[in-house]
Amino acid sequence: MYTLKNKQLHVGIQQKGVELCSIKNLENNKEYIWQANPEIWGSHAPNLFPIIGVLKDGQYKFKGSLYDMPKHGFIRNNDNLEVKNQTKTSITFILKSSEELSKIYPFKFEFELTFTLNGKTIEVTHLVKNLDNQTMYFQVGGHPAFNAPLFDNEAYEDYYLEFDQKLSLESYILAESGLVSNETKTITENDSKIKLSKDLFNEDALIFKDIPSKNVVLKSNKHGEILSVSYKDFKNLGVWAKPGAPYVCIEPWLGIADVEGTNQNIETKEGIITLGSEKDFSASYKISIA
């Protein structure tokens, strides 16, 4: 495990998939990141690239060829990211395209992920470099899971998410295949809060496209603000947990899973980012501990 530390926080990042696996508040000695109980959900905070969610039949088309791609892409569970540079409060990992990766992703690229600790805030920065002589197509996002409840004598139902404005939010419903359907359900009507409950995620993740709010706070009825996630660079937001599990994922996304009616062409995939030859792309989100 790689570590970042200052007087307020101790942050851990695991080698596999360079997942953020620990945020410990040194003031109260509490662990804020879900500890990946494999009997419930065996991840902490997957990094999503070059797709988000699932593809129809696990495949996409590019220039007449079909390519296989696992759910959420190939950074997750990847052991090949290397440290590019590190200080006490910052670390950058890099993954370069390879002959092996080209079998599932036919682009020459570099992907960098930087974690920066400043006070009680961790900034996660994604940098994508297109080293190819052709346009590159990708999506990128985060999937951090936070412990809820955090303190003794609390219940999951004591927790809620609060946005920085009142919203009327419709969530797109996922089909059993994991593809995004055209159906929606109303989550909030002119309200800034989503109350957590054990049945909130019975139909899988809440998916908010083009969400106007760019900051959400996890709060407890008994302890007030727990943490916040700000995501000004990201258009979409996912919120998820295994039903009944003691955590909640707050997921900034640039992209979305395939829609049911997809033609599987990556160039026209909903939410795809188009990056020209020799161009760079960067997007960051921040986690701030109260």
Results as ranks from 00 to 15, higher is better:
1 M>A: 11
5 K>G: 02
7 K>A: 13
13 I>D: 00
13 I>R: 01
16 K>E: 15
17 G>L: 12
22 S>A: 13
25 N>I: 10
33 I>T: 04
34 W>G: 06
37 N>Y: 03
37 N>G: 01
51 I>D: 09
56 K>T: 02
57 D>G: 00
67 Y>Q: 11
70 P>W: 04
71 K>N: 12
76 R>F: 08
84 K>R: 14
88 K>F: 08
98 S>R: 04
102 S>P: 00
106 P>G: 13
108 K>R: 12
108 K>Q: 14
114 T>V: 07
116 T>A: 13
118 N>S: 14
123 E>H: 05
127 L>F: 01
128 V>F: 11
133 N>F: 05
133 N>W: 00
134 Q>P: 00
134 Q>T: 15
140 V>Y: 02
146 F>K: 05
151 F>H: 15
157 E>T: 14
167 L>T: 03
170 E>C: 00
173 I>F: 02
177 S>H: 05
184 T>I: 12
190 N>L: 11
192 S>N: 14
196 L>Y: 11
200 L>M: 06
202 N>A: 11
205 A>V: 12
209 K>N: 06
209 K>G: 00
215 N>F: 01
215 N>M: 06
221 N>C: 04
222 K>W: 07
229 V>L: 12
231 Y>T: 00
233 D>A: 12
235 K>T: 09
235 K>G: 00
240 W>S: 01
247 Y>V: 03
251 E>N: 03
252 P>C: 03
254 L>C: 09
254 L>T: 10
255 G>R: 02
257 A>N: 10
262 T>G: 08
265 N>F: 13
273 I>H: 03
277 S>H: 09
279 K>L: 08
284 S>E: 10
